Computed example of a mutant assay.
Amino acid sequence: MTKILVIDDEPDLVRFVRRALEAEGYQVLTSTNGLEGLRLALDQHPALIVLDLAMPGMHGEAVLSALVTQDPSYRVLILSATADVQLRIACLEQGAVDFVAKPFAVRELIARARGRLGEDAANRRKNRLRVGDIVLDLEARQLVVDGRPTLLAKREFLLLRHLMTNPDAVCSRQELLSEVWGYDFDPSTNVVDVCVGRLRSKVGPDLILTVRNVGYQLQSA
C-alpha cells in the first residue's frame, strides 16, 4: 500500500486530509510538528510527503531542505496558506514537487498527489521485468511472485534477469555461464543447474524448463 505522510499543525485539517487519502486507498501517517514529522519521514520513507510551512518544532522550509539534502528522491508536496510568492518559488527550487495553496479543494489535492505518485509508478515500471505472474525489480533486485516479495542472491538475480530478458528463448548453459558467472566455458561445473534449482523453489517448479543437453527456457505463458 502506498504510504503518504501529512505534516501540518492543524489537527482538524490533518484528520480531514487523512480520511480523504485513506478513502483513496493510501496508507496515511501524520504529524503536527515539523521536527517530529522530519524524523517520521526519515524513518518511514513515504512515497509522498504533504508538508505545511508554518509549524512548531521546525519550519516546513527547513524540513524540506533537510529531506532533499538527505535524499533528493523524497517527493514533497507543499500545502500552505503563505502568500509569499518568493517563498513558494524557493520551496520549488529547493526540490518540492508541487505547491498547493490553502484554502484548497480536497479533490485537487488528491489529483495532484496521484499525479506525483503516478510519475514514480511510471519510473518504477521502467525498471521492472514482468513475465507471467512474476516481476523482477531491477533497482531493488527483488523478485515478486503473485504479489509477494522474495529475496534473491546475487547470482540468482543475474540469472533470472537474463532469462526474463529472453522469455521463451532457449538459453544454453554456456551462455548463462558467460553472462552470469563470467566463465567462457567449463563443462565440468554445475553452478547453473544448482542456481536454477534455487530459482525454481522461488518462482515455481514449472516456469523454468530444462532443455535436454542445451540449457533452460523461461516460459512466458
Results as ranks from 00 to 15, higher is better:
residue 96 A to Q: 01
residue 150 T to D: 10
residue 178 S to R: 14
residue 78 I to W: 01
residue 40 L to I: 13
residue 220 S to I: 08
residue 3 K to R: 15
residue 39 R to I: 08
residue 81 A to V: 12
residue 157 F to W: 04
residue 53 L to K: 02
residue 3 K to I: 12
residue 180 V to S: 01
residue 216 Y to D: 08
residue 62 A to P: 00
residue 158 L to M: 13
residue 26 Y to A: 04
residue 63 V to W: 00
residue 107 R to L: 13
residue 219 Q to R: 14
residue 30 T to F: 07
residue 97 V to A: 11
residue 8 D to T: 05
residue 78 I to K: 00
residue 50 V to C: 03
residue 135 V to E: 12
residue 122 A to W: 07
residue 173 R to P: 11
residue 28 V to H: 01
residue 122 A to G: 06
residue 220 S to G: 11
residue 38 L to M: 03
residue 218 L to V: 08
residue 154 K to Y: 14
residue 35 L to K: 06
residue 43 D to I: 03
residue 178 S to C: 07
residue 30 T to C: 13
residue 28 V to I: 11
residue 26 Y to H: 04
residue 69 T to L: 10
residue 66 A to S: 15
residue 45 H to P: 04
residue 12 D to E: 13
residue 109 L to N: 09
residue 80 S to C: 09
residue 161 R to L: 11
residue 209 L to M: 12
residue 178 S to Y: 10
residue 197 G to E: 13
residue 170 V to L: 08
residue 204 G to D: 05
residue 181 W to A: 08
residue 160 L to H: 00
residue 219 Q to H: 03
residue 199 L to P: 02
residue 188 S to P: 04
residue 211 V to W: 06
residue 89 I to K: 06
residue 60 G to N: 10
residue 94 Q to K: 14
residue 108 E to D: 14
residue 126 K to V: 13
residue 180 V to T: 03
residue 194 V to W: 01
residue 57 G to F: 04
residue 172 S to P: 08
residue 140 A to K: 00
residue 217 Q to H: 06
residue 159 L to A: 08
residue 174 Q to A: 11
residue 120 D to R: 04
residue 192 V to W: 00
residue 14 V to I: 10
residue 71 D to K: 05
residue 13 L to G: 07
residue 210 T to F: 03
residue 95 G to D: 07
residue 157 F to H: 02
residue 64 L to D: 08
residue 54 A to L: 11
residue 94 Q to M: 14
residue 63 V to G: 01
residue 193 D to M: 07
residue 118 G to L: 09
residue 107 R to I: 06
residue 145 V to P: 01
residue 102 K to W: 11
residue 60 G to W: 06
residue 16 F to R: 07
residue 209 L to R: 12
residue 55 M to T: 10
residue 135 V to T: 14
residue 116 R to V: 11
residue 93 E to K: 13
residue 41 A to V: 12
residue 6 V to I: 15
residue 74 Y to L: 10
residue 195 C to P: 01
residue 160 L to S: 00
residue 52 D to R: 02
residue 90 A to M: 07
residue 15 R to K: 13
residue 34 G to Y: 00
residue 126 K to P: 01
residue 161 R to Q: 15
residue 31 S to H: 06
residue 9 D to F: 05
residue 134 I to E: 00
residue 133 D to H: 09
residue 169 A to H: 09
residue 54 A to R: 12
residue 37 G to T: 04
residue 27 Q to D: 12
residue 83 A to P: 02
residue 119 E to A: 05
residue 63 V to E: 02
residue 150 T to L: 07
residue 75 R to H: 12
residue 81 A to W: 11
residue 37 G to H: 02
residue 76 V to I: 13
residue 148 R to M: 14
residue 194 V to R: 09
residue 70 Q to F: 04
residue 72 P to T: 11
residue 135 V to S: 05
residue 158 L to R: 02
residue 117 L to M: 04
residue 10 E to Q: 08
residue 65 S to D: 15
residue 33 N to E: 15
residue 211 V to Y: 05
residue 180 V to Y: 01
residue 15 R to N: 13
residue 156 E to V: 06
residue 188 S to R: 11
residue 87 L to A: 08
